[in-house]
């Protein structure tokens, strides 16, 4: 994890320097002469994005000392096969959720004069699917 942390910090510093260069260049350029905010904000927050993830990984690294196979010269490729987490192979809830979300999005897309009537039919489906998915392993046979 150490190399990931270093790379992200390098990216953060790079974006920070570029934000300064970009801002300064816009100000001294006679054709422009003022701060161009879109680029400045985007570069500055790109630095925050990288620094934020680096900072978090650093905390994780310090608290558990995790070493990834990428950091280990003796590791094999398949050591990096990750544990993807806990997913139900038979769950229908994601299907219901995207179905409901689609109805909501279509309802918003075809709305005329702010009348989202179709979206209101999708909203309860989204709600049911969300609750169903979150509590899939908290009820019935697999309650724990």
């Amino acid at each position: 994890m150490k190399s990931n942390i270093s790379i992200l910090w390098i990216l953060a510093v790079f974006c920070l320097i570029l934000a300064g260069v970009y801002t300064f260049w816009n100000v001294i350029d006679p054709a422009h002469g003022r701060v161009e905010w879109v680029g400045t904000v985007a570069l500055l927050l790109s630095a925050i994005l990288s620094g934020f993830i680096a900072f978090y990984l650093r905390l994780v690294y310090r608290s558990q000392g995790g070493e990834l196979p990428e950091d280990n010269v003796a590791a094999n490729i398949d050591d990096a096969d990750p544990e993807m987490g806990h997913f139900a192979p038979w769950s229908w809830w994601p299907f219901v959720l995207v179905g409901g979300a689609s109805v909501v999005i279509i309802g918003i897309s075809v709305a005329q004069e702010g009348n989202f009537w179709l979206a209101w039919f999708g909203a309860p489906i989204v709600l049911v699917a969300l609750v169903g998915w979150v509590y899939e392993f908290y009820r019935g046979r697999f309650a724990h």
Binding site: S50, I53, Y56, V60, Q64, G66, N72
Partner: peptide, 29 residues
């Protein structure tokens, strides 16, 4: 090799929040 992976849910959430930083970057811009 000894591999001690961080919690995927936690790291994934942080990376997603990183993307949220860029979403708000657009709004600030």
């Amino acid at each position: 090799p000894k591999i001690n992976r961080p919690n995927n849910v936690a790291v994934g959430t942080i990376v997603w929040l990183g993307s949220e930083v860029m979403f708000f970057a657009g709004l600030f811009a």
